[in-house]
């Protein structure tokens, strides 16, 4: 039994400490993920809060299959998409990172802005798949679960995203 499921069971018994541990374990990466897929810094904070509230409300119905991480990312993905739909605009990655980029220090700025620019040039579903793979270490099947699509679709999004990035890099070289 992995640590997540131990915490989940404890929370279901009403253990507040376990809940606190779970929040501290996932808060940073969920917040970071939401920020990366397009929510500005302040909005990402609000959405992260909503994700944890929804997670806790839905926990009694959670079917334990050792995929807690994918499950909470899925909540984050759905919440973010709902938020984007409701606010009628999708913030570009560059806008989302603007506030943070200003605080960047020296040599990191160049790489950071290149990554932003590259991901910005992709459709959101493809960039989201790449973020999950390369920034959050998910496998293709986990990405499929998070995004609520089939495995071939998830693989195709990663492949297409990488292909487009390669093309962009070649163009830049030329």
């Amino acid at each position: 039994m992995n640590e997540d499921s131990v915490l989940v069971r404890a929370i279901l018994q009403g253990d507040e400490e376990a809940m606190e541990q779970l929040v501290y374990r996932y808060y940073d990466e969920i917040f970071y993920y939401i920020n990366q897929i397009g929510a500005p810094y302040e909005e990402a904070k609000d959405i992260t809060q909503e994700v944890f509230i929804s997670m806790l409300k839905a926990l009694p119905k959670y079917k334990e299959q050792g995929h807690f991480k994918a499950w909470i990312y899925r909540i984050a993905y759905n919440k973010s998409m709902n938020h984007f739909r409701q606010s009628k605009y999708v913030t570009t990655l560059s806008e989302a990172h603007e506030e943070v980029a200003e605080d960047d220090i020296g040599g990191t700025v160049e790489n950071q802005s290149l990554v932003k620019e590259l991901l910005d040039s992709l459709p959101q579903k493809q960039s989201s798949a790449l973020i999950l793979k390369y920034f959050h270490g998910f496998t293709a099947s986990e990405i499929a679960k998070v995004m609520g699509v089939s495995l071939p679709t998830a693989k195709s999004r990663i492949f297409q995203g990488l292909k487009k990035l390669k093309k962009r890099l070649k163009e830049d070289e030329n």
């Binding site: 929370i11 009403g14 507040e16 809940m19 810094y41 809060q49 943070v100 960047d104």
Partner: peptide, 25 residues
Amino acid sequence: MYKQIPPVDEEEKRELVHKLKAYMP
């Protein structure tokens, strides 16, 4: 693979934990 985590407000986390207590199953 290059990533830089934006700074997370620790106070936010504490507030969230406090708020979540009301939603404990």
